[in-house]
Amino acid sequence: MRVKVRIYCKRCGERFVLRGRRETNRIETGFKRCLCDNADEFIFEEEAL
Rank of each mutant, 00 (worst) to 15 (best):
residue 10 K to A: 08
residue 39 A to G: 02
residue 26 R to D: 03
residue 1 M to T: 11
residue 11 R to A: 08
residue 22 R to D: 00
residue 34 C to Y: 05
residue 42 F to C: 05
residue 34 C to R: 03
residue 48 A to N: 13
residue 23 E to K: 12
residue 46 E to S: 15
residue 6 R to V: 07
residue 41 E to H: 10
residue 34 C to T: 03
residue 14 E to P: 00
residue 27 I to N: 05
residue 49 L to P: 05
residue 23 E to R: 10
residue 30 G to W: 01
residue 48 A to M: 07
residue 3 V to G: 07
residue 26 R to K: 14
residue 13 G to A: 06
residue 45 E to C: 01
residue 31 F to M: 07
residue 25 N to W: 09
residue 21 R to Y: 07
residue 5 V to T: 10
residue 13 G to S: 05
residue 43 I to C: 05
residue 48 A to T: 14
residue 11 R to N: 13
residue 48 A to Q: 14
residue 48 A to W: 01
residue 3 V to Y: 15
residue 15 R to G: 01
residue 36 C to H: 05
residue 31 F to G: 03
residue 33 R to D: 00
residue 31 F to K: 02
residue 46 E to F: 03
residue 16 F to A: 11
residue 1 M to E: 09
residue 5 V to S: 05
residue 8 Y to D: 10
residue 11 R to Y: 02
residue 40 D to P: 00
residue 4 K to Q: 11
residue 5 V to L: 11
residue 15 R to S: 08
residue 41 E to F: 01
residue 43 I to M: 02
residue 10 K to H: 08
residue 12 C to L: 09
residue 23 E to F: 02
residue 45 E to N: 06
residue 28 E to K: 10
residue 3 V to N: 09
residue 44 F to H: 08
residue 14 E to T: 13
residue 7 I to D: 01
residue 39 A to W: 05
residue 40 D to N: 09
residue 25 N to F: 10
residue 38 N to G: 01
residue 47 E to C: 07
residue 37 D to I: 03
residue 43 I to G: 00
residue 7 I to H: 12
residue 9 C to T: 07
residue 45 E to D: 11
residue 36 C to S: 04
residue 42 F to D: 06
residue 25 N to M: 05
residue 29 T to G: 01
residue 19 R to A: 08
residue 10 K to G: 02
residue 21 R to K: 14
residue 42 F to R: 12
residue 7 I to N: 08
residue 4 K to A: 05
residue 8 Y to K: 14
residue 39 A to K: 12
residue 34 C to K: 03
residue 10 K to N: 11
residue 31 F to T: 11
residue 35 L to D: 03
residue 18 L to R: 13
residue 19 R to Y: 14
residue 32 K to G: 03
residue 36 C to N: 03
residue 39 A to M: 12
residue 36 C to L: 09
residue 46 E to G: 04
residue 27 I to H: 03
residue 2 R to P: 15
residue 28 E to P: 00
residue 29 T to V: 11
residue 32 K to P: 00
residue 38 N to L: 03
residue 19 R to D: 13
residue 6 R to A: 09
residue 8 Y to P: 00
